[in-house]
Amino acid sequence: MSKDWPLWEVFVRARGGLDHRHAGSVHAPDAQLALRHARDTYTRRLEGVSLWVVKSTDIIASDPAHAEEMFEPAADKVYRHPTFYDLPDAVKHM
């Protein structure tokens, strides 16, 4: 019987100019080993040029059960989208 090492979330930047994207997670005793495990687990085929690891317990997530009240305020603000504005055809490319 052993104790699980802490869980780390792994983010991979596929190539320069792109965001780091969540790829998965690894268990590791410390940050350096988490990086090594992340490399072996998620970049065996040149999937990345940069890695982030973050302790899973350090991530604060919103509650999906409250997704409605969390995101609903954006639903009735259609004027935030450019297509809301009906402009004369004479105004080209705006």
Binding site: S2, W5, A28, P29, D30, L33
Partner: peptide, 14 residues
């Protein structure tokens, strides 16, 4: 097991 124990010991020391 000894590899895992060594990694734990290293982390504790750090």
């Amino acid at each position: 097991a000894w590899v895992r124990a060594a990694a734990d010991a290293h982390e504790a020391k750090q």
